[in-house]
């Protein structure tokens, strides 16, 4: 399975996670830093626009010493709730997946005892 397909489902939650840490700009660098090195703007910008349109994040412009004002993103109360739901879902999903993988490993080590 391509990594990009796996990432698609969780990227939204990861973007919310980064923004939840405080007013953010330069999300691409933050996501690269957090283990999404192959992420491109073609994926990120439409996702940000979707989250903003859906009311999970808002953006404000703040002056920048390097040039024109930058767009900073913040979570809205709805976005905080979406992020909490994501954490809950991710915790369940990752638990189930890890359990399944552990079972596979254990079966590999003991081929005579399935399940």
């Amino acid at each position: 399975m391509k990594q990009s397909q796996l990432i698609k489902g969780v990227l939204e939650g990861c973007v919310l996670a980064i923004i939840s840490q405080g007013e953010t700009y330069g999300l691409m660098q933050a996501l690269h830093h957090h283990g999404f090195p192959s992420l491109v703007g073609g994926t990120l910008y439409p996702l940000l626009a979707k989250l903003e349109k859906g009311g999970d994040i808002v953006s404000i412009k703040k002056p920048s010493p390097d040039g024109p004002a930058r767009k900073y993103y913040m979570l809205t109360p709805q976005g905080k709730e979406t992020f909490q739901n994501f954490q809950h879902q991710w915790s369940q999903l990752s638990g189930h997946v890890n359990q399944l993988i552990d079972e596979v490993h254990s079966n590999d080590e003991n081929p005579g005892h399935p399940g």
């Binding site: 491109v40 073609g42 994926t43 910008y45 626009a49």
Partner: peptide, 29 residues
């Protein structure tokens, strides 16, 4: 900023600007 780190527009935004454009248009109010 990406240029300053040696990335071109194609590397930064991806090889499919049309799809990115279409997805952005879908999000226009």
């Amino acid at each position: 900023e990406a240029n300053q780190h040696g990335q071109s527009a194609r590397a930064f935004f991806g090889n499919d600007p049309q799809t990115m454009g279409n997805h952005l248009i879908q999000q226009f109010p």
